[in-house]
């Protein structure tokens, strides 16, 4: 398994998109840092931007969706799936090695974003706020930042597990990435309507779209009035949906013909 993960990391590290994604993320975060410094009224207060990793928590899913779509679909597109499958490893091991690689990649993205946020804060907002300042009645800025990262990470993996399932269906990387990203935006559009519908049919509170509010709920104590779920319930549902999608992905991958 370690060999397989190393192989996947080798491929990831030799794709130019890996470096372009990282550079783009840092550029976008830096740009938002400047906009927030000079136009806080339009682009949000710096402490809120810091907590949200200067929008890193919104950009990372896009890059990760692209990476997860590609890591499976490219093997079918390039015909390399046969090279992987005929060797001594089992299909399950090959798929799990890809999951592990993507997990490490997502940890890398969040780590880099957090580190870069701290750099932006130190350079642009050193005198504006301290990490120990109150974010709201209950949390300090750094505490809220950590909770947002945890919540975003959990929700990201709920989405990615679905993307990894869909990527099994497509033979073209471009198709898989397009559908993943369009679906991601679609989820947030539907989510707004879903909250209204949930007030009418309460059981809908368990739908995956409602779980997307987990980062908000972790930092806003009253958010459960909107989501109708407690934080432990949301975390449990998030993990549950992730596991279900990954299991389905495993089954589909094992049965897929090459």
């Amino acid at each position: 398994m370690i060999t397989l993960v190393k192989q996947e990391c080798f491929k990831l590290l030799h794709k130019s998109s890996t470096y372009i994604s990282s550079a783009t993320l840092l550029l976008l975060m830096t740009a938002l840092g400047f906009l927030s410094k000079y136009y806080p009224g339009s682009w949000g207060k710096p402490e809120i931007q810091f907590v949200q990793l200067f929008a890193g928590i919104y950009w990372i899913p896009l890059f990760m969706i692209a990476a997860c779509s590609s890591i499976i679909a490219m093997e079918f597109q390039y015909g390399t799936i046969k090279e992987l499958l005929y060797r001594k490893y089992y299909r399950g091991q090959i798929l799990i090695s890809k999951w592990i690689t993507m997990f490490l990649y997502s940890v890398y993205f969040f780590s880099v974003s957090l580190a870069w946020s701290l750099v932006i804060k130190a350079v642009l907002f050193n005198d504006t706020f301290k990490l120990s300042d109150q974010y709201n009645n209950q949390l300090t800025i750094i505490h809220a930042n950590i909770l947002i990262i945890i919540g975003s990470f959990l929700v990201l993996w709920m989405i990615l597990s679905l993307v990894l399932l869909l990527a099994n269906v497509f033979r073209s990387t471009a198709t898989a990435i397009s559908i993943g990203i369009v679906g991601y935006f679609g989820l947030y559009i539907i989510e707004g309507m879903m909250i209204k519908i949930m007030n009418r049919w309460e059981w809908l509170k368990w739908n995956p779209l409602n779980i997307l509010n987990l980062p908000l709920q972790l930092t806003e104590p009253n958010a459960d009035k909107v989501t109708l779920l407690s934080t432990p319930e949301m975390v449990g549902a998030c993990l549950g949906y992730t596991i279900i999608s990954l299991v389905l992905s495993y089954i589909v991958f094992k049965r897929r013909s090459v």
């Binding site: 491929k11 030799h14 794709k15 130019s16 490219m74 093997e75 390039y78 015909g79 390399t80 799936i81 046969k82 090279e83 005929y86 060797r87 001594k88």
Partner: peptide, 17 residues
């Protein structure tokens, strides 16, 4: 399969490597 090598149909090649 540890002792088997194969080329099936067409070579599977990663363009970025």
């Amino acid at each position: 399969m540890d002792e088997v090598g194969a080329l099936i149909e067409y070579p599977g090649i990663y363009p970025f490597l």
